[in-house]
Amino acid sequence: MAPKGRSVYWYRKRAAIVLTHAALIIAALLISSPVLFAIIKSTQTTAQVFSYPPKFVIGTAAPENYSIAWHNYNLGRLMLNTFIVAGAVMLGKTLLSLFAALALVYFDFRFKALIFVFILVTLMMPVPVRIVPLFDLMRKLHWGDTFWALTIPFLASATGTFLFRQHFMSFPTSLVDAARVDGVGPLRFLWQILIPMSMNTIGALAVIEFVYIWNQYLWPLIIISSNRSQMIQIGLKMLTGAGPQGMVNWGVAMAGTVITMLPPLIVFMLLQEQFMRGFALAEEK
């Protein structure tokens, strides 16, 4: 079925489209392949994992592997811990940065610019540049091995304050004037007007914070010592520590890896919307 009028140009263009599809499929497969291997191997028995040449099909040990990872390595508990900590930080950070932005945009007071800079400069203070004194401070506060150490020091957010401040400043002035005429106080103004108008920004920030805390590694590694209050990423490390026979059970380790990666991945699918909107990636017709 080659109607006349289809030039060499048409065929060339067609070939280019097919090639682009092929290249994109190969790229997507290559990028996903490490995770696909991990999923396949998480279903195999040790014998299947170590067979040579390797088997790239679903194995027979999926229930055992996942159950060992979940129960023997306490992943359920660690996951709950991480959910509590990530949820608390997410909530606290959002609330504190909303308060800070409300103060910075809708009030006049002395040293306002200075305070804003004071908050912004903390962007340059990641954990590694203060790790030894912070660790010592936790010990003095008797916060070692507690969730306090994982949450309280992380509640201030320069990024959040900055984002909400920008967002509030884009609102019309009439908003606050109307509120004042109606006798609405600042806190009710925040709760009933600003927050409903900022749901997108709040969602984006909350999701980013959640993934960040979920994936955090260095700080829980040093500050949490008991298995009972440990975070999931550190639990994952135990799975690849040598077992009693000095050998890693890779099927179980991969099952644990899959379990660990799921929550942020699910959250990422929600974030996807924000990404597509935020970065104008969805221009495609």
């Binding site: 990028i31 291997f37 990422f268």
Partner: peptide, 19 residues
Amino acid sequence: LLIWPYALSPAVAGTIWLF
């Protein structure tokens, strides 16, 4: 399909590549 590994943590990535 191209950007989703962004959500994986360094520790998860490390474990997979260790394997």
